[in-house]
Amino acid sequence: MNSDDLISSDSVFSKKQQQIISAIANAMIKKDEVLDLPSASDPLVMKTILDKSAHFSERLVAGIDTLCEEIDPLTSTPEVLLGVLDKNPKFRALSRTLTIIIMQSYYQDPRVLSAHGQSARPPFPLGHKVEQGDWSLLDQVKQRTPFYRPV
């Protein structure tokens, strides 16, 4: 997959900024062929990431600019990139914001949810089955005398 495939020309982020976000996403969640799980830089996941990132574009762009003063995110290894993001206090806010966006985007992808045996559809309109559970467990509490404080 060519990273250019996921670059959207109408994004609030420049092509380079999109590539950097993609590199960070790939560093956070790698592809796993055994489990049949995509990387977070997968084009469909990246589309969601970029859509979500737009709301926070100002702070993300500022953070990415500062990051580029420290390292070249596009030539750094994933380990170096994550190390700088997570260990340098200067990038704490950027790292936290991107972590939230990337996880929220990745874990709504039906392929990811299916691979983990989770429901790969929106909750509505079908809902879910929840077992009633064993109500006899309450018998022990029902024996207790009222204990609210008298006034």
């Binding site: 929840v130 077992e131 009633q132 559970g133 064993d134 109500w135 467990l137 309450l138 022990q140 509490v141």
Partner: peptide, 15 residues
């Protein structure tokens, strides 16, 4: 509402 697995599990702990 149903206890579900979670409610049942926590109820065991409280009991």
């Amino acid at each position: 509402i149903p206890l579900g697995r979670t409610g049942e599990t926590l109820a065991h702990g409280f009991n």
